[in-house]
Amino acid sequence: MALRRTFRVMLALSPLLVAMACVPNPPKAAVTDVSTPQPRTATYTCADGVRMTIENLGTSVRVVGPDGASEDMLASPANQNSRYEQAHDAIVIDGREALVMKAGSTPVTCKR
């Protein structure tokens, strides 16, 4: 008798268990390193040996290459301070690292 009752309860609960298993895990928040905030001006050395300077202007950054040429990049989206873009180029700053993405090139990691 108890075995029959257990079987009926399991049959009743199995759709609920299946439904719970189908619910996706909640998305994990992106972790950024806030222990070392971006200074006003910082020099980065990239994995390909290139050095660049990033000047933090608040809602934008100015990137100065080794040849002295500069490019201003706006925050994207405008309400944050780690992702910047201009046309097809972008930079993501995370603590002491910056990921530099240029159109047509492989992304490069740079460290200060």
Rank of each mutant, 00 (worst) to 15 (best):
A2V: 13
R4G: 10
R4S: 09
R8S: 00
R8W: 10
M10K: 08
L11V: 08
L11A: 10
L16I: 05
L16N: 05
L17E: 03
V18T: 08
A19W: 02
A19F: 01
C22S: 10
P24I: 05
P27T: 05
A29E: 11
T32E: 14
D33R: 08
V34N: 10
T36D: 13
P37V: 13
P39H: 10
P39R: 12
T43H: 00
Y44M: 00
C46E: 02
D48A: 11
V50H: 10
R51E: 12
R51C: 03
T53M: 02
E55I: 07
E55M: 05
N56V: 05
L57T: 06
G58P: 02
T59G: 14
R62P: 02
D67S: 06
D67F: 04
S70V: 07
E71K: 10
M73Y: 01
S76D: 13
P77A: 01
N79R: 12
N81H: 11
S82R: 14
S82K: 08
Q86G: 11
A87Q: 14
I91R: 04
V92M: 13
V92C: 04
V92W: 15
I93N: 01
D94M: 01
G95N: 04
R96H: 06
A98N: 00
V100N: 03
M101T: 13
V108D: 01
V108F: 02
T109S: 05
C110G: 00
R112D: 09
